[in-house]
């Protein structure tokens, strides 16, 4: 059984299920590319290793998961590690401990409506193919949405460095 001392603050973490149901068969880790990381012991599952640390939402490899959901597919106990990881990531973002590139990507969405920047090379390459420059995304809508959902406040907190 997983030794869990970490207490989640949201009931959809399904900690009880995780604690009760996972019997460390490690079938999930057979399919998981994150298992190659030296932070993880190959005998354990990714989720076990996350929860063996004092602050799983600050784990250095939390954001290395690709979200392929194979762990969820193969788990004989319906643990749904993919969901646990999604929830921990949300917590890490709010706590300011997500990797820098995640905040950068969200800020870029706010600024341009897109997740990848349109550069001079983009414009040049598109021109050669006869494609117009990509239109700027709906940034006003995104700003209003971020303000209403509270994501803007999380970004501001991060900008202030807290």
């Amino acid at each position: 059984m997983i030794k869990i001392t970490y207490r989640g603050r949201k009931k959809d973490y399904a900690f009880d299920r995780l604690r009760e149901a996972c019997f460390q068969c490690s079938v999930c880790s057979l399919h998981c590319v994150v298992q190659d990381l030296e932070e993880f012991d190959a005998k354990h599952t990714f989720v076990y290793d996350l929860f063996s640390s004092d602050e799983p939402h600050r784990h250095s490899a939390l954001w290395a998961c690709s979200g392929c959901h194979k762990c969820y597919e193969v788990c004989p106990q319906d643990v749904n590690p993919a969901r646990v990881i999604e929830n921990l990531r949300e917590e890490s973002f709010e706590a300011g401990s997500a990797p820098g590139y995640v905040y950068d990507q969200v800020e870029l969405m706010l600024e341009t409506g897109m997740s990848f920047p349109v550069t001079k090379k983009t414009v040049k390459d598109r021109e050669k193919l006869g494609l117009a420059e990509p239109k700027k995304g709906p940034v006003e809508d995104i700003r209003k949405i971020f303000e209403k959902t509270g994501l803007m406040q999380k970004l501001e907190k991060r900008r202030k460095g807290s």
């Binding site: 998961c65 690709s66 973002f93 995640v102 409506g113 809508d141």
Partner: peptide, 13 residues
């Protein structure tokens, strides 16, 4: 707009 990214943006919020 961006879809948005089901791994990073979903992870954010």
């Amino acid at each position: 707009s961006c879809c948005p990214d089901p791994v990073r943006v979903m992870g954010a919020d």
